[in-house]
Write a protein that binds this DNA or RNA. Sequence first.
DNA 1: CTAGAACCTGACGTTGACGTCAGGGGCAAG
DNA 2: CTTGCCCCTGACGTCAACGTCAGGTTCTAG
Lengths: 121, 121
Amino acid sequence: MRIGELATEAGVSVRALRYYEEQGLLAATRSNSGQRLYAAAAVDRVQLIQNLYAAGLASRTIAELLPCVDAKESTPESRARLAAERDRIDGQIAELIETRDRLDAIIELTERPEHSGCSIH
Amino acid sequence: MRIGELATEAGVSVRALRYYEEQGLLAATRSNSGQRLYAAAAVDRVQLIQNLYAAGLASRTIAELLPCVDAKESTPESRARLAAERDRIDGQIAELIETRDRLDAIIELTERPEHSGCSIH
DNA sequence: CTAGAACCTGACGTTGACGTCAGGGGCAAG
DNA sequence: CTTGCCCCTGACGTCAACGTCAGGTTCTAG
């Protein structure tokens, strides 16, 4: 598939895909005329990349982790790296849950019209 | 307390605090000589702001939400706004959990030295 | 064969949350 | 009084993940 189709399938921009290639996150073969060609599996790959970006990983970090994903093997260092990122994400989740609960409390507070009387009236 | 102390207490930079004021997120009284003075409650406020930033809210959005937090009351619109952001955060949490699980799967995969034979040896 | 969509490679623009530097004032200790 | 630390206001710098524009090539439908 060509870049436009992949972009549509994966829900990202064409520019983003070229950027991922530039960063070494996503390889493509080329047609005779130089157009990028992708396998169907690229859709999943792009979504993983997006997930990792959304989790706050930088291109450089992703670029360091993906090769060992592809190779399906890892050095002790890369394993530690993966685990560290996993734990970071865990921390982020906990933080987000806390933030959501604070927001809930605020909503609770602001929802009561006058005083917080709970009388059934 | 002055700005340096608040920065230390809340774990952010002095520059960040000035930026929050510029964005209308954090008010301060001024001493005769023009120095910013904060109440003790400001520490908590700053941490809430940080939480909201970490949850992906922009300054503008936070600036729109905080006043109704202070007033402890809300218009129907602001209530909808609060709920919408809450739901956005919920979505983010779900996405992060998915990402974490994908990472876990990857770790699983790469941890097995050779083939995935589960034989006890 | 030709118009228009899709692709290519640079390369500069954008945005948000600060970092950092310049230049100057105020305040407690010695 | 002066040394040193904290404070002030601009105002420019930064960085990442793209957006966007220019100028040119390629593919495809009629």
